[in-house]
Structures are given as structure tokens and as C-alpha cells.
Design a protein around this nucleic acid. Structure first.
Length: 538
DNA sequence: GGATTGACTTAGGAGGAGCGTA
DNA sequence: TACGCTCCTCCTAAGTCAATCC
């Protein structure tokens, strides 16, 4: 779909100009009447120590701050920011009283909420000005929106799940920490007054505009383009094209790994079983992770023996594998899956003479798995199976029809839901779930009562009809919402489902696209909206 | 080959805008 | 006009995977 010529060998652009990242405002010292207390006595902290104290104070009503690991990490890092005197005085977090700091924070939040319409508008305009100035770049001939042009503000690190580094201080990033990437002929961004950049480089083989190293994990952070940019759009399109290519050879690949289950080589059999899981269950590849650096989560290749239980029979089914492990973001994967005899036998073998903590696939890692995959098809890696199986599932499930618009949308959401369940995309049930469900039920009840009365009275045909329509809509809505209680549809919509399937479906079903794609999605998938005809097949 | 680093995609939650309703 | 609810946008953590180094 992209007319302009492609650059050769890894070149991503010829011209790149931008204003550099936007830095968050500096720390505002506490007013004199807001005090921190240690052991009951007011203590005036040095500014660096005060800033970090406030990070903690802002979080005290969050569960995080009750956790041992969080408190210890915080206290250790906080003490590093203190002066010698402060460090000698403040020895015990339990003797710290952040009450006034917390109260001030709450008051500020309240005040922000209670701003008048006009004041909110003023803020909005100020924000827009920042976006206008820093939010765009010029890449080749296009003005493009930048995804994250703001430097992440300092704070306390909030890892997910049982993260060993939770509570550590995430330090303030200075221009001196930031590498700028832009093209040679462009106007180089000005660092904030009195500062300089760590480096200005001109690397056209990468797509980032700025980067810095984050201090908690030591990893790189990047400023990159928005998903609606040409660069990202092309990459996204390519991703789905690779997945479509897998469709043409997936049968051969499946036959191959079925065959490999019988191999004399243990490594080959392990690879075959792993591939079977990745294909059938849409598991992630599962890179190995450094112990103690992150929460203990796994994917396919890093499964350990304690993560599966083998059942010769379970609930009347044979050869059942029970999975129970924490995956990405510490989301639990729990599933009972009947597998073929051969897979089952192999798994028994892999588990022999192993104990808790041992790798299930001790002869396999993601590098060798992906090397094998790329030999079967160029561009094929483990994650392509997720994209492929997600998209093909959507396409198959969309064969369920509905005659009214709301029923059509229900069937679309159900297809989307099937994918989300496959990919294990979960969410915490909304806090208001029970209440809003009850409200909906109440409305439906009212509607039903009205219908009862009116059908007796006769007449009022219009009102009856309207009421019936409303009722149907609410019933569908209730079903949809109930089924979706703990399922996140957005992740698969955004990352796994070829948008052309959805665009074609909308055309065929005469459903307006904005019923299934919000503005962000319509922007991101502009390429698909442009090029897709009603007869598109994934 | 094994570890490390760098670049990029994928992920769920927080918070707020905006809408409909009482 | 305030309130409650929903959905969107933003945020940034946490993955994947290839390149590089030794």
C-alpha cells in the first residue's frame, strides 16, 4: 500500500527532525506548614530527601506500601538521597510520619478535580501547546505524531506482581542522560537552558528519536513514533503479512512437529512439544530471565516441572495437561488441555527424574526454537503463531451472524472474546461491575413492567415497540458485559487481529466501523481501512 | 554457544474526559 | 447541575528477538 520506494539494508529514514523530549516540571518544595515527622518530631528534610518522601507519601493508601519488599527497597533508596545528618537520624521507616504530606497530596487531587470548566479549559489548552511543540516530528516528507515525547517523571518503581525491585527510586532524568537521534541536515533540538545532551547521533538504522537508560533495571527507554505513523503502520502491515504467509505453510509445519515428536533426539522432541503448545495454546516463547531481577514469570520454553500436572484421565478425558503458571505481567495461565498420546508420553519423559525448579524443556531455548522456525519459513518466530492463530480464530468465529446491529456487534465481540481467551488477555473485573450490572437489570425490569401494562391497555403501539427495542438492546448488552467481566478485548484488537478482517466484516455486515474501532484504532489502522475490500480473506 | 545489549512490540491499570441520567 | 458510569488515552512495565561480544 505504500507507494514510496523502500530504503535498502536496514535504513529506516533519510530525514528526521524533532524538538527533543519534553521534561517534566522540576520539584516544588513543600510549603512551610506541611511537615514530615520522625519519631513524633518535625524534621525539615533536604530537598532531594523531601522529594522522595513525597513519592512515598502519595502512595501510602496503596497496598504497595504495606509490602515488606516495597518498604525495604524504598527505605534503602530514600536513605541514599538523604544528607549524612538525615541518614543518622532516620533509621526506621516505621517511625516516619508522612501524614501531612499525604493530606496535602489528597487536597491537591481534590482541588484538581474541582476546577471550574474554564480552568480545565485553560489547562487543556496549555497541554495542547506542549503537544503542538514537542509532540510531532518530521520524518522524511511526513509530519508525524510522536508516541511518548514526555520523559518519564521520577517516582517509586511499581513492578507488577511479586517484583523484587518494587519500591526502588526511579530517578529524575536529566538532559545529560538523554541521547538524541536525528538526521545530519536537520535542526538539532535545543537542550533545556543550562543543560546539554548526553550525545547527539545520526543513526538512520533505528526508529527512535531519543533514548535514556533507566536506573532501576538498567534498560533503555526510547522516544518513538505514534502507532498511526507511516513507519509503524508499515511494520504492522508486515507483521500481518508474515502471519498470512504462515497460513500457507502451517499444515506442513504441523506435520513436521508431529513427526518430530517421535525423534530419537531428545532436543528435537522437546522442540516439537514446545511448538505444539505454542501453536495450539498460543503460549509466548518464554525467554529465560535473570533470577532476582524480575518477578518469577514464564512462557513456553521456560516452563518448569511445577507448572504442569499430568493426568492420565481427568473429568472423563484422557491425557490431560493441567497448566498453572504466571505469564507476562504476572497474569495467571490456568488451563486443562487434552493432548495427543504422543505429546503426553513425551511430557512424562521430560519430567522424569526432575524436581521442582527444573526446566521442563532442558534441551531447548527460544534462540534455538526461533532458529528452527526461521529455517521453515523466512520471518517465522514463535510470536507469529500467536498473531496467526488470533487472526484466523477471529475470521472463523465471525461466521456467526446476527440480524440487528446490536446482535451483530455481540457476535463480533464474541469472536474477539474467543481470541482474548486463547491469548489469555485478562483484566481485573471493573470496580463498578456488580453495581452497574444491577442497574442494568433494574432498567430491564422497568422496561418489562411497562410492556406488561401496555399490552393490556393496547394502543400505545409506538411506545411498546420502542420499549421492546430498548429491552432487546439491554439484554444483549447485559450478556456481552457478563461474558466480558474478566476479559480484555483491547489487547488482541490492538496487537493480534489483522484489522483487514474487521474492516471487511464491517463492510459486509453494514456495521459502521466506529462501532468496533475507536479513534485511536481507526488512526492506527488507517492503512487497512484504506486498502480493504469486502472480500478480504486473511 | 552463552551472555549481554539494544530495539522494538505487547500488556494491564490509572485516571480523566465526556456522556447520559436523576 | 451534580452525579455516576463508561470508555478512551496515557503510561510505562514486561515481553520478544536479533545482533554483538567473547
Amino acid at each position: 500500500p505504500w507507494e514510496e520506494e523502500k530504503y535498502e539494508d536496514g535504513v529506516k529514514w533519510k530525514f528526521l527532525e524533532h524538538k527533543g523530549p519534553y521534561f517534566p516540571p522540576g520539584y516544588q518544595p513543600l510549603p512551610d506548614d506541611v511537615k514530615f515527622y520522625y519519631n513524633g518530631k518535625p524534621v525539615k528534610l533536604s530537598l532531594p530527601a523531601e522529594e522522595v518522601a513525597l513519592f512515598f507519601a502519595q502512595m501510602v493508601d496503596h497496598e504497595y506500601t504495606t509490602k515488606e519488599v516495597f518498604r525495604n527497597n524504598f527505605f534503602k533508596d530514600w536513605r541514599k538521597e538523604m544528607t549524612l545528618e538525615e541518614r543518622q537520624l532516620i533509621m526506621d521507616l516505621n517511625k516516619c510520619d508522612f501524614g501531612e504530606l499525604h493530606a496535602m497530596h489528597i487536597k491537591k487531587v481534590e482541588a484538581r478535580k474541582n476546577l471550574s470548566k474554564e480552568e480545565k479549559l485553560v489547562n487543556k489548552e496549555a497541554n495542547q501547546k506542549i503537544v503542538d511543540e514537542y509532540g510531532y516530528c518530521v520524518l522524511d516528507h511526513h509530519r508525524e505524531r510522536i508516541g511518548n515525547f514526555k520523559i518519564e517523571p521520577p517516582g517509586l518503581f511499581r513492578g507488577r506482581g511479586d517484583h523484587p525491585k518494587q519500591g526502588m527510586l526511579k530517578k529524575r532524568i536529566q538532559p545529560e542522560d538523554v541521547i538524541i537521534n536525528c538526521s545530519k541536515g536537520s535542526r538539532i533540538p535545543e537542550p533545556p537552558a543550562g543543560h546539554r545532551w548526553k550525545e547527539v547521533r545520526h543513526d538512520s538504522t533505528v526508529t527512535w528519536l531519543a533514548s535514556w537508560t533507566e536506573n532501576v533495571q538498567g534498560s533503555c527507554k526510547y522516544v518513538m513514533l505514534n502507532a498511526n505513523s507511516k513507519l509503524k503502520g508499515e511494520k504492522d502491515w508486515e507483521k500481518y503479512e508474515v502471519a498470512r504467509k504462515l497460513k500457507t505453510c502451517v499444515d506442513a509445519i504441523r506435520a513436521q512437529y508431529q513427526e518430530d515428536l517421535k525423534s530419537k533426539q531428545m532436543g528435537t522432541r522437546q522442540r516439537a512439544v514446545a511448538l505444539y503448545f505454542i501453536d495450539k495454546l498460543a503460549l509466548r516463547a518464554g525467554n529465560e530471565k535473570e533470577e532476582g531481577e524480575t518477578a518469577d514469570t514464564v512462557g513456553c520454553c521456560s516452563l518448569r516441572v511445577e507448572h504442569i500436572t499430568l493426568h492420565d484421565t481427568l473429568d472423563g478425558q484422557k491425557c490431560v495437561v493441567e497448566f498453572d503458571f504466571l505469564g507476562k505481567d504476572c497474569i495467571r495461565y490456568y488451563n486443562k488441555v487434552p493432548v495427543t498420546k504422543r505429546v503426553f508420553k513425551n511430557l512424562k519423559l521430560f519430567m522424569e527424574n526432575k524436581q521442582e525448579g527444573d526446566d521442563l524443556f532442558d534441551r531447548l531455548n527460544t534462540q534455538t526454537l526461533n532458529k528452527h522456525l526461521s529455517s521453515l519459513m523466512p520471518g517465522l518466530t514463535a510470536k507469529v503463531f500467536r498473531t496467526y492463530n488470533a487472526s484466523i480464530t477471529l475470521q472463523q468465529q465471525l461466521k456467526e451472524l446476527g440480524n440487528s446491529e446490536c446482535l451483530k456487534l455481540l457476535s463480533y465481540n464474541r469472536a474477539n472474546r474467543a481470541v482474548a481467551i486463547l491469548c489469555n488477555h485478562q483484566r481485573a473485573p471493573p470496580k463498578t461491575f456488580e453495581q452497574s450490572m444491577a442497574n442494568l437489570q433494574a432498567k430491564m425490569f422497568t422496561c418489562k413492567s411497562i410492556l406488561c401494562v401496555f399490552s393490556v391497555v393496547e394502543k400505545k403501539k409506538k411506545a411498546v415497540q420502542r420499549c421492546e427495542e430498548q429491552l432487546l438492546k439491554m439484554e444483549v448488552q447485559a450478556t456481552d458485559r457478563e461474558e466480558n467481566k474478566q476479559i480484555a478485548l483491547s489487547t488482541s484488537k490492538l496487537n493480534y487481529l489483522d484489522p483487514r478482517i474487521s474492516v471487511a466484516w464491517c463492510k459486509n455486515m453494514e456495521v459502521p466501523l466506529d462501532k468496533i474501532y475507536n479513534k485511536t484504532l481507526r488512526d492506527k489502522f488507517a492503512w487497512a481501512i484504506d486498502m480493504t475490500e469486502h472480500d478480504f480473506v486473511f
